[in-house]
Design a binder for these strands. Structure first.
Length: 421
RNA sequence: GGAGAGGUGGCAGAGUGGCCGAAUGUGCCUGACUCGAAAUCAGGUGUACCGUAAGGUACCGAGGGUUCGAAUCCCUCCCUCUCCGCCA
């Protein structure tokens, strides 16, 4: 949620910030409603104060006396007005808040301007794409792929995009998760195992609602959403809580399956592991002091990058341009791994600073050490990493002539072998 | 799922229609005493919104209702505990 004070004081700044993103909203309507709201609140509270004073005066009177009866009648009229006015105020506040929730975060000054994804900047590239094995081929074309990952039976049991991982492949996924979690722990992130379903309040706090309502699976009978990322339950862990400044930054990580409807996004380039409705991911989350959040974003990105380096997978880092960063995001890096078989970059991580946007919605604040008002923290998160595309890159880049897949050295103890065969 | 009890400030806990944003205890902060600490004493100690300010308003699980007036009465929902049932 945007700071309403900034919107009031400097609507042009917000307007320009939003114009750089791919979202639309009617700021003028919100500002008009803001004026109306404050006026209604003032009227309501003034009348309410009047009622309280008058009501207090009645305490002194004996019930049933003519004076009491006379006052009572006047008070009834006042109560009717108070009630009507409060109902109006409540209605205006509800509309005001609903509109406010539709305003996206504004991009940080360091985010490059751009009209679409072609203007994302390559922030850095790591590893050598040219040394990829001559046997490299798309993961869905390697000899044992269908034996290891069963899409057909996934379709039978659930639907497209819900594969089974079989035997050594299942163990490889588990090994990757353990590697990722151990790596996060060694970087100071406390592991959490979270719920996989969340309520609407949680979805709203992190910004999935109302923005991405249609992208989440919804458990109708219980009004719960299947999480699209661990970001939602993990960030909401501290919803409506106040930290002491000395406790910041806080770092947590969590493995969860992620459920995404991906409505409307199917087409070319989604074969095999490239895009799934359910996938496994380890997510890093930070709660920081506002002054340090952008530095913390850099170290968060490095924490994610280090895993790809250890897996010896070539990758690049994109600094996302204004039009391509998400609704709640202030600044965002995407990590893309090189899939040498498909010869394309696959997004395996998105590391973002949400500044105070989620924290305002979620009511996550801190008490400054020097005293003064409590204020929102900054929240950040990043994948480290999403499994299927990392898996795809390992399969594609490391497949040998005989169809066996060489397991990266760092991963071997987690997998329990040197080859997937 | 059934029956019962309950949800009040950081925590414990009183309050069953007005004198209650809320006793009391405890924790925490500040000061006094002390060489220092403990003990003791005194003061302070929630969040949000409206207002330039003075100040005002709201919040006793959530939402609605009754009433001149609701922490307190009524309704719905959520949650916790106890017992029973079911169950990995």
């Amino acid at each position: 949620m945007i700071d309403i004070q900034i919107l009031r004081d400097n609507p042009e700044r917000v307007r320009q910030g939003i114009a750089l993103k791919k979202f639309n909203c009617d700021l003028d309507a919100i500002l008009a409603l803001d004026v109306e709201r404050r006026q209604k609140v003032l009227e309501s509270e003034t009348l309410r104060a009047e009622q309280k004073v008058a009501s207090q005066a009645m305490v002194a009177l004996d019930k049933g006396t003519p004076e009491f009866q006379a006052k009572l009648e006047a008070m009834q009229a006042l109560a009717t007005r108070v009630k009507a006015l409060e109902a109006e105020t409540k209605a205006v506040e509800a509309r005001w808040e609903a509109l406010l929730l539709t305003i996206p975060n504004v991009p940080h000054a360091s985010v490059p301007l751009g009209k679409d994804e072609t203007e994302n900047q390559v922030f850095k590239t790591w590893g050598n794409m040219d040394v990829i094995s001559p046997h490299a081929r798309p993961h869905f074309d390697i000899p044992n792929f269908e034996k290891w990952i069963d899409f057909a039976r996934g379709v039978k049991v659930t639907g497209a995009g819900f594969p089974f991982y079989i035997g050594p492949m299942a163990r490889l996924v588990r090994g990757l998760l353990n590697l990722f979690l151990d790596e996060a722990a060694s970087n100071g992130y406390t592991e959490m195992l979270s719920p996989h379903l969340v309520n609407a309040a949680s979805g709203t706090a992190t910004g999935q609602l109302p923005d991405k309502e249609g992208q989440m699976y919804f458990a109708n009978g219980d009004e719960l959403y299947l999480i699209p990322t661990a970001e939602v339950p993990v960030t909401n862990f501290f919803r409506d809580e106040i930290f002491e400044e000395k406790d910041l930054p806080l770092k947590r990580c969590g493995y969860t399956p992620c459920f995404r409807r991906e409505a409307g996004s199917w087409g070319a380039h989604v074969r095999g592991l490239n895009r799934l409705h359910q996938f496994d991911k380890v997510e890093l989350v930070k709660w920081t002091h506002p002054d340090h959040s952008f530095a913390e974003l850099e170290s968060l990105r490095e924490d994610a990058e280090r895993i790809l380096q250890k897996l010896e997978l070539p990758y690049r880092v994109l600094l996302m341009c204004t039009k391509d960063i998400g609704f709640a995001h202030s600044k965002q890096y995407d990590l893309e791994v090189w899939a040498g078989g498909q010869k394309r970059w696959l997004e395996v991580s998105s590391c973002s600073n949400f500044t105070d946007f989620q924290a305002r919605r979620a009511g996550i604040r801190f008490r400054p050490q020097a005293g003064g008002k409590v204020q929102p923290v900054h929240t950040l998160n990043g994948s480290a990493l999403a499994i299927p595309r990392v898996l795809a890159a390992i399969l594609e880049n490391n497949v040998e002539a005989d169809g066996r897949v060489k397991i990266p050295t760092i991963l071997q103890p987690f997998f329990g072998g040197a080859y997937l065969e």
